[in-house]
Amino acid sequence: MSSGDPKRTGRAKGYLQAFLFLLPGLILILLFFLAPVIITAVMGFTNMDYRFQWNFIGLGNFFRMADDFLIPKILINTLVYTFGTLAIFNVTFGLILALLTTSISERVGLFFRALWLLPRFTPPVVYAAIWLWILSPTRNGLLNGLRVAMGLRPIAWISQFPWGVIIITNGIIGASMGMLIFTSAIKAIPRDYLWAARVDGASWFQEVRHIVLPLIRWPLMFITAYQTLSLLTSYEYILLITQGGPFHASEVWSLYAYNKAFSAYAGTYEFGYAAALATVLVLIGTVASIAYWKIFRFREMMAQPRIEVS
């Protein structure tokens, strides 16, 4: 046999092997991540409705989006919701929880962290129902019950503070993710650094500012980026608690797409338009990812592999 350069065939064999190892993962990614995006994008160029016909209408859906008088409102809602929840709860409050529960005795800290995780184990519908009770505009709701007991008039919380409601209800549950990641990051800091800082004269705040925060910089940036993307696409608690109301006041992009596709109040099932909306959201998410990747310089976080694969 006239086989070529043995070095070359060896390398080709190596690539084949690597490919075979990657194949199961690739299939999963293709099937569950890439395929839906492609199908959604293609669907975005049709006017598909409950009859499921692929009638391609070019950029029709995107022109419609540009004319949709609701879109500016939805966009602002989405930005306020995403960055409000992120800044107040998912990063800041998660960080405060992690700092506080690692500064007290281990057992008490663990108790509070477990407490904060409880909503994660609760079915979303139950969690939403509890909030509906707390925020009920009638005097039977928790908050209004308290107001009435103090001689004040009940307030229609959801109508009056739609942004506040969606940020708080999502943030209370969302903070636990950051809390967990930050807690483990803080615990991974060698205690010698913290002891050295204490001997060097640092107060608790100075210790946090000069030692802890710089040393958990990567987890902080990771949670910021990750939670931005997950908040951009999340809508289930908003759907359950405010339905995006009153009159789109708390409706975010992903919920708007959902409503266009599945909700009866939009009239027909506008799968085509909804798919176009979803495609735009995917694009926004992609742009945000790239921006975070550049701004946070995530490449620096990655190390070269220690072993050589030929």
Partner: peptide, 20 residues
């Protein structure tokens, strides 16, 4: 008395130099 008010210098076995 808190460590910071003890006027003590401490060299750790690990040196504990702040890496950042």
């Amino acid at each position: 008395v808190a460590p910071k008010d003890r006027y003590v210098g401490l060299v750790f076995q690990s040196y504990a130099l702040y890496p950042h």
